[in-house]
Computed example of a mutant assay.
Amino acid sequence: MSPGFGLKGSGSMSKPATVGDNLSAHRHGWLKKTNVQKWIFVLLSITPAFGGYLVFTLYPNLLSVYYSFLHWDGIGEPTYVGFKNFVYMFEDPYVWRALGHNLLFMVTIPPAVILISLVLAYVLTNRKYWGSSVFKVFFFFPNVLSTVVIALLWSFIYDGSFGLLNAFLGLIGIEMGNFYWLGEKTALWAIIPPAIWGGVGFYIVIFVNAMVTIPKSLYESALLEGAGHRTRLFTITLPLISPIIRVATLFLALGVIKGFENVLTLTNGGPAGGTDVIGLYMFNIAFGKGSHDYGYASAIGMLLFVILITSKWLSDKWLPNQSIEY
């Protein structure tokens, strides 16, 4: 009998499955199962964070765009007004006054914080003082406190009757009487020192950690060439940590533009709007005393969003974004 007797199709016998083939099929199935498990794990890992971003960031922002075309007090029936909120916003003098205050804070607070933090970080890194670690903790202490607590502390310092500032000035021969520093004449400038004091400690820690990564051999070579502290600071330290300085400046500038907790606690925008900033003005329109207008507040929020995006673009264009290596 021929070997192909009784077989349909080909006259040759089919090759029986080997142990290797079974193992290959088993491995292929196991691999597919592993890929599925991997993607399930990835989805489960990112879902909480991404879901929180969608619910608490993206969705409110998109909703603000919708609200900006409405007149709505948050309770009654909303009324569609089109671009009237934006037209009124550009005609509102309080908006531009608040933006002027933001501009003042942006050109004073970030440079002061960066300068003071760099000087103190350089001193702590290159001058081996006794108890340097204690000084680091001391400088960082304001960052342990919330912005509201810092503002409340400074409100007591600025008090005219029992404030520490008037008492200190009296000790050095400058009698201020019961002068109230959060009054009409000085309130705007009195907001700047608390913001600087509350931000310096964090950036000292950032700059110290950046400076300690610079190779000691660079400073030793500079010392052999007779370079002093100033030369080493401007030719070695600052160029090597310039990317860190750039990011710190960006964070500070954006924080000053959108932040208002310090002003809210110290003056609530007063007296007579003399310290109002754009974030606080928007907050008071939406949630302050009297009538509420979520639509107009949302329109101001859109303006604030454009300002933040523009500031980021300008910082990327003007601030150097390249690291230097020796």
Rank of each mutant, 00 (worst) to 15 (best):
S2E: 13
G6C: 07
G6R: 07
L7H: 12
K8Q: 15
M13A: 15
A17H: 11
D21H: 14
L23C: 09
R27C: 00
W30E: 08
T34W: 05
T34L: 10
V36S: 10
K38S: 05
L43S: 14
P48R: 00
P48V: 10
L58M: 10
Y59C: 08
Y59S: 12
V65L: 15
Y67E: 00
L70M: 15
H71F: 03
W72H: 08
G74Y: 09
G74R: 04
I75D: 01
E77I: 12
K84E: 15
K84W: 04
F86H: 09
Y88C: 06
E91R: 13
Y94M: 13
R97M: 04
L103I: 12
F105D: 01
M106D: 06
P110W: 06
I114K: 00
L115T: 12
L115R: 02
L115V: 13
L118I: 10
V119A: 12
V123C: 08
T125H: 05
T125A: 09
K128M: 08
V137Q: 12
F139M: 09
P142V: 13
V144G: 11
V144A: 13
S146T: 15
V148W: 12
V148Q: 13
I150E: 03
A151K: 00
W154D: 04
S155D: 14
Y158H: 01
S161K: 15
F162T: 11
L164F: 15
L164P: 06
L165T: 06
L169A: 12
G170V: 02
I172Y: 09
I172E: 08
M176C: 10
F179K: 10
Y180F: 14
L182V: 05
I192D: 08
I192L: 11
P193R: 03
I196P: 07
W197I: 08
G198H: 04
G198K: 01
G198P: 00
V200Q: 04
V200A: 05
F202L: 13
Y203T: 00
V205T: 13
V205G: 09
V208I: 14
V208L: 13
M211C: 02
T213S: 14
I214A: 03
K216L: 10
L218N: 07
S221W: 07
L224Q: 09
A227V: 10
G228H: 11
R230G: 15
T231E: 14
T231K: 14
L233C: 06
I236Y: 01
I236N: 06
P239L: 02
I241D: 04
S242G: 09
R246H: 05
T249V: 07
G259R: 04
N262K: 11
T265Y: 00
L266K: 01
N268A: 13
G270D: 02
A272H: 05
A272D: 11
T275V: 00
T275G: 06
I278C: 04
G279R: 03
M282P: 03
F283E: 08
H292I: 06
D293H: 09
D293S: 07
G295V: 01
Y296E: 08
M302T: 07
L303W: 01
L304K: 00
I309R: 10
K312W: 12
L314E: 02
L314S: 02
L314P: 01
L314D: 02
D316G: 13
K317A: 14
N321D: 14
E325V: 12
Y326D: 11
